[in-house]
Simulated assay, not measured.
Amino acid sequence: MSRASDYDSPKSYTLVWVATLLLIVGFVTGLVMFPPMYETPKDEATSSVLFVGRFHPILLHMPVGALGLLCLMELICFTRRGEESLGVGALLTLWVGAAGSVMAVLAGIMLSREGGYEGGNFTLHQTLALIGTCGVLLALVVRIFSMSHENRELMHAYRALFFGSFGLMGLGAHFGGNMSHGSKFMTEHAPEPIKSQITGMEKWMLSFVEKPKTKGEPAAPEASPTPAPVPTPVPTPVPIPVPVPVVASSGTTPTPPPPTPPPPTPPAGSSSGPDEKLVFQHVILPIFEAKCNKCHNEDKSKGDLRLDTYEMALKGGENGKNIVAGKPEDSLTVQRIALPDDDDEHMPPDGKEQLTPAEAAAIRYWIQSGASETMKVSEAQFPPEAKEAVKL
């Protein structure tokens, strides 16, 4: 039998129709059981739900690989010969990519039940992934229909729908990367034209979903002795010599010129240059940003804990006060840092960049000194072991 006759022979798509309908029913059922949430859940999820949710980072690679391969296949399938050669393979790849998308989205929704996921990046990540997955499922239905009816015009509509849906999923993945690695992960080393375009796109999209930022209510620090500020020496005014009147030859005494006023004395406690730097803003917060805030920020607050602002840091999380002013031994931050690296409660967790001894000592000193937001570096008396972390 010739090769052409194979293409002209009728094909049955009953099996793929059944598999696709089961996939759609499973997706809808999953969304009904676990509807998407955009705020911290009120009820604690079961262990089985969280167990499945932890597979989200693994499952999301399957649709990325399958749908990425399909993009190349569809470029070949634009021609009639390419469609005849790769059409069935493209359909199978599309089904695998759609199934992977469904599993990744449902696992991601289950993972969000763990709490600590909120903010603009999370909203866009989840929303775009949902829309993209629905688009891929619809594209799958359109491709099966166009192949079974040999409708090339409908095939063009399918490709437009598929590429658009895949693009939305890519955008959703980008905002998911912002949650996991920080908003500068993709742009930090990008060329300036690309960086400006990506940054502008992010700001524009986030403007539709982000709530107005409001400062959280700071937790009232427990009473603790705050170290007295080191008094700044007040410069003693230099006496200005008064010119001695000179008797003129005519015997009259000329009026002396008025004395020049002394320079203004700076108020006590004021300083300039590096002395104006604050301990929290310029020493402690950069440590949090480098070692803690990938999991404790506005978009991803694991354990309902944020360390990206002073107010949020003092507010604490679901396990209690992470910072107890004047009492580092009662502060969860210090306790978790001091645990052995292999302890499940140690922070940062195993596999993440750890704090240096100097950084840990700096945090401990700041809390011991009262955890002030306004204490200046010039007033602080960091212990020798913390000096390495105070490079300004």
Rank of each mutant, 00 (worst) to 15 (best):
S148Q: 14
N178H: 11
E114G: 02
L128I: 07
L137F: 04
E188I: 14
S148L: 10
G132P: 03
A173D: 06
A190C: 04
R159Q: 13
V142G: 00
H181M: 08
I131N: 01
F185Q: 07
L140W: 05
G119T: 09
G115A: 00
G135L: 06
S183Y: 12
L128Y: 09
H174A: 04
S148F: 10
Q126K: 09
H125Q: 05
G115C: 00
F145E: 03
E150I: 11
G115H: 01
A157F: 14
T133C: 02
T133V: 09
L140T: 07
M147F: 10
F175W: 15
F166M: 13
E118H: 09
L140C: 05
Y117T: 05
A129K: 09
G170W: 15
H149T: 15
H181E: 10
Q126T: 10
S148C: 07
F166R: 01
L138K: 08
A190W: 12
F175C: 01
H149D: 09
F166G: 00
M147C: 00
G164N: 04
A160Y: 11
H181Q: 07
S146T: 14
L171N: 05
I144D: 01
L171C: 05
L154N: 07
G172N: 11
H149R: 15
G164L: 13
H149Y: 13
G120F: 12
T133I: 08
T127C: 02
G135A: 03
T127Y: 12
N151P: 09
A157V: 12
A190F: 09
N151K: 15
F122L: 10
L138G: 03
G167E: 07
F175N: 02
H156S: 09
L138M: 14
E114N: 02
G135D: 03
S165G: 08
L130K: 02
R152G: 04
G132S: 06
L154R: 13
F162H: 03
A190V: 10
N121R: 04
F175D: 02
N121S: 01
S183T: 14
S146G: 08
H125M: 05
R152V: 13
A160S: 05
F175E: 03
V142M: 13
E150S: 12
T133H: 01
V141P: 00
G177H: 10
L124I: 15
G176M: 10
G170E: 11
